[in-house]
Write a protein that binds this DNA or RNA. Structure first.
Lengths: 133, 133
DNA sequence: ACCCGAGTTGACAATCATTCTCAACTCGTC
DNA sequence: GACGAGTTGAGAATGATTGTCAACTCGGGT
């Protein structure tokens, strides 16, 4: 293997910083297009393609969570670095990160019971938050 | 209420039967396009738009499950009528329906803890099935 | 300061799944 | 056998996302 293939250099460009800042400025899930728009409002001119590329990197790096709306659109949100799930308000989008050993254990045992290995899972909870109730 | 608005008439057309049969012929998740193709192979000529429409009806009626692949494509599968989740093989797509009060309870309590009402959730488990291991 | 190559960017074209449009068609019924 | 509502299909339209590629920017030498 000739490939040491270290972390390929990542440059802190104006655009990347702008996206990172934008992501830090809201707590719910937003679509790439919305984020792009938000950048425009802030006066930070960033190409849509770049927004997509950057969000993808961030997602790969585990710095943002990606979800799919009912109609298949990808939405993003900054997140903590530990494994967790989301409790999302159907009406206003307010999001709470939740976690706990219960589900983790349950999914593992279900998988084991059927002989599945290398298990991972996705779990999202939707509801109406107290403020929207 | 003037609206008795009963089940709007649903006609058992050749196309709808064909799709229903097709859905019964496989046990994993397939995309609308794949299902359309499968119909073609079977000699049942059905328009793509109709396949989409029919799948949507079936999904609304709860007769098929819909999932989103990593890249946002919708995939369908016939399912039992009770609430359940899926254990899907990442490599061959083999699917097992799983259910249990544990998760249901966990999600409810999490929601309650944060004051969320009207809760629903989605949960999918991915892994490598025994045959693909 | 200046040069250079690799990593980046952006405008725009290209993809691709899904939905829309609407005239022609089919069912079950009268 | 005719009627009207529900259906269908071909193709256009939509909309998110990705690809293309020439121009640009960074940071490390020199």
């Amino acid at each position: 293997m000739t490939s040491t293939d270290p972390t390929p250099p990542l440059r802190p460009t104006r655009q990347r910083k702008a996206v990172a800042e934008a992501m830090a400025s809201f707590a719910d899930f937003r679509s790439a297009q919305e984020i792009h728009e938000l950048l425009g409002d802030r006066g930070e001119q960033v190409g849509l393609a770049t927004v997509y590329r950057t969000l993808q990197r961030l997602a790969d790096a585990g710095e943002v969570d990606v979800l799919r709306t009912e109609d298949g659109e990808a939405i993003y949100r900054r997140c903590s670095d530990t494994h967790h799930h989301h409790l999302v308000c159907r009406s206003c989008g307010a999001t709470v990160e939740v976690e706990g050993p219960t589900v983790e254990r349950w999914t593992s045992s279900m998988a084991a019971e059927h002989g599945y290995a290398d298990v991972s899972h996705t779990l999202e909870i939707f509801g109406t938050c107290p403020r929207c109730a």
